[in-house]
């Protein structure tokens, strides 16, 4: 009775606690070895509730993930690109907007060849391709992440309303979602992006975010409905807990796992969609700040003669999308309740 979880896990949990402690940033661990990994160093203050959940959820997932090769590969890819995106302005060998090689361009040879100092050569405007790829990572990742966050917020709001209230509100929201889902995603993104007279990166972000909203809304509503019928929500209601804390404290945090997984997967899709929009000229037209999809679009007229111009940004898009997808898939496995315990 007195010993929780059994001593079998103690030694293991001690090791785990080192990780979780690191995650909880200086919060003092308890001396006794009875706690089992994930929730160990959580706080009890209501104010720190959000933080405590975070530690618990993330720590539990991390415990599983750090031995998962697929996740580590995905995470490594993503981290490399994020790091490159952050430090791009400092490591780019040349100004991505500077037409340094423009004097090499002539009608017989419109694309400057790779040469010392310009390992990938230049583009059709005489700008350094490598520098543009590096700096382009910034823009591309920013658009992907922001579009996903936008879609996530909208979807979480709608899904929460639908799942928490049920009945006519749920029906109304879900019919809207159904209509949005019945239009092919990319087509809808094009339509939304094309509605703006002057495309900027923000119109791209908005177009892709709106397309993601119904996916997140439907996903969250599904798990909210499951939560609504769950035992612990019934138990909380049996204790007289009011509707708002039931939704916010008891239903939402428990419904969030699939949404987090979906978000990582959606980032990959968002990057590809943003590239597609830019490729079709619905993205940011200002090519002084490069973006992979836009580079791809510019490269199409030279595709037969100089395929490398398209290969490089395409490869970057594929690899980054792959990285996010690998992360998302392994996260899905890690958060899957069936693989737990």
């Amino acid at each position: 009775m007195g010993i929780p979880n059994g001593p079998r896990t103690w030694a293991e949990s001690k090791k785990k606690r080192i990780d979780t402690l690191a995650a909880s940033a200086g919060r003092s661990g308890r001396g006794e070895g009875a706690g089992d990994g994930p929730g160990g160093p959580a706080t009890g203050e209501a104010g720190a509730l959000k933080g405590a959940e975070g530690v618990s959820l993330l720590a539990a997932a991390w415990r599983r993930l750090r031995r998962n090769a697929v996740f580590l590969i995905g995470a490594a890819i993503v981290l490399v690109f994020v790091a490159l995106a952050i430090i791009a302005p400092w490591i780019a060998p040349h100004d991505p907007a500077g037409r340094i090689l423009v004097d090499q361009i002539r009608p017989s040879n419109p694309i400057p060849q790779p040469q010392p100092g310009f390992p990938l050569g230049g583009d059709s405007s005489g700008r350094d391709l490598l520098s543009r790829l590096l700096v382009g990572a910034r823009q591309t990742l920013f658009v992907g992440v922001m579009a996903t966050l936008g879609g996530l917020s909208g979807g979480v709001l709608l899904g929460t309303l639908a799942g928490a209230f049920g009945g006519p509100i749920d029906s109304l929201i879900m019919r809207i979602v159904d209509v949005m889902l019945s239009i092919p995603a990319l087509l809808m993104a094009f339509t939304i992006a094309a509605m703006f007279a002057k495309p900027t990166q923000w119109t791209v972000i908005m177009a892709i975010a709106i397309v993601q909203v119904p996916i997140f809304a439907r996903l969250l509503r599904g798990s909210m409905l499951a939560q609504r019928r769950s035992d612990h929500v019934l138990a909380a209601r049996a204790l007289g807990v009011k509707q708002a804390p039931i939704v916010i404290r008891h239903m939402l945090p428990n419904s969030f796992g699939p949404v987090i997984v979906q978000a990582t997967l959606v980032i990959a899709g968002a990057i590809i969609d943003a590239a597609a929009l830019s490729f079709l000229g619905l993205g940011n037209p200002d090519d002084r700040s490069p973006e992979w999809g836009q580079m791809l679009g510019k490269a199409q007229e030279f595709f037969n003669t100089f395929p490398h111009l398209a290969m490089w940004p395409a490869a970057c898009i594929i690899v980054v999308a792959l990285g996010f997808t690998l992360m998302g898939e392994s996260l899905r496995e890690a958060l899957d309740p069936k693989s737990q315990r």
Partner: peptide
């Protein structure tokens, strides 16, 4: 009245507790 004058204990103690919230928060809540 629920929780105050009438209370109920359910069958499955694991699923009757919110898995992502520390125990203390759940007791304090009442």
């Amino acid at each position: 009245r629920r929780g105050q004058e009438l209370a109920m204990v359910f069958q499955d103690p694991l699923s009757s507790l919110n898995p992502v919230v520390p125990l203390g928060v759940q007791v304090c809540e009442v």
